[in-house]
Design a protein around this nucleic acid. Sequence first.
DNA 1: ATTTAGATTGACGTTAACGTAAACCAAACC
DNA 2: GGTTTGGTTTACGTTAACGTCAATCTAAAT
Lengths: 132, 132
Amino acid sequence: MTFSSASADLYSVTELAEELGITPRAIRFYETKGLIKPRRAGTTRVYTYRDRARMQLILRGKRLGFSLADIKEYLDMYDVDPSRAKQVKLLLEKVDRRIGELEQQREDLETTLAELDEMRQQCVAKVEGATQ
Amino acid sequence: MTFSSASADLYSVTELAEELGITPRAIRFYETKGLIKPRRAGTTRVYTYRDRARMQLILRGKRLGFSLADIKEYLDMYDVDPSRAKQVKLLLEKVDRRIGELEQQREDLETTLAELDEMRQQCVAKVEGATQ
DNA sequence: ATTTAGATTGACGTTAACGTAAACCAAACC
DNA sequence: GGTTTGGTTTACGTTAACGTCAATCTAAAT
């Protein structure tokens, strides 16, 4: 018989922070900005597996250089009720805009990587020339 | 006979700013941070074609989410004297670190784009379902 | 019962990346 | 020769994204 424990792991704010490599302060700050809304046990914040996943989305957004406001917009996309047709059209526009941004970013990224690779080649050549 | 005009176009700070879609203030600020050092005609800043190219590198760095300090480090890589072997090794390390960062970013980027694409499909499906 | 360990909410401090306003020059135009 | 136009520096203001206390509470251990 297979068990799926009803709600597996819960985290305190410090536990979650450590696991993510950030500070509790940051997580609480994101909450004031409406990026995550953990449940509470009394007054204490309790984070679930899903909250953790959401936090990882936030951090990925940050690594990509987006502001918290941008990231909130992005996260809110997931929360749109798919039955509300009018909302869906707006969502679609947002998604398309975001995709456009990211494709520009991809171009920048590839260009920069190519330049760095070339620079790397020249470095390696120089270093090898010196040791021979 | 082929001419290569000695020094083609020069820009004032406002001209350059307009062409780049930023403010003069920003350009002057980058100067105080050591990111660009235009020549002067008396006290007035004069930017060359190369300065413009350098500014574009700066803006690309910004689009990629790097801080001005990061970008300065990146730009300084171009200025390393390739004959100084010791410097070259340090440069090589920096280049490799930066490449690592960008490859992480590329991963994040592709993942996010994939997710957005999926979201897009669902949106399109919903919208089409509603109009039929 | 009291210490302790970890949680909470303010409130203020800090850094980056500019914006904005003030006071000042200098060339150019009427 | 005054004035407009566009440049300069200096200084203070602002927003985002947290860091850093301080005061308080509370569940658990001694």
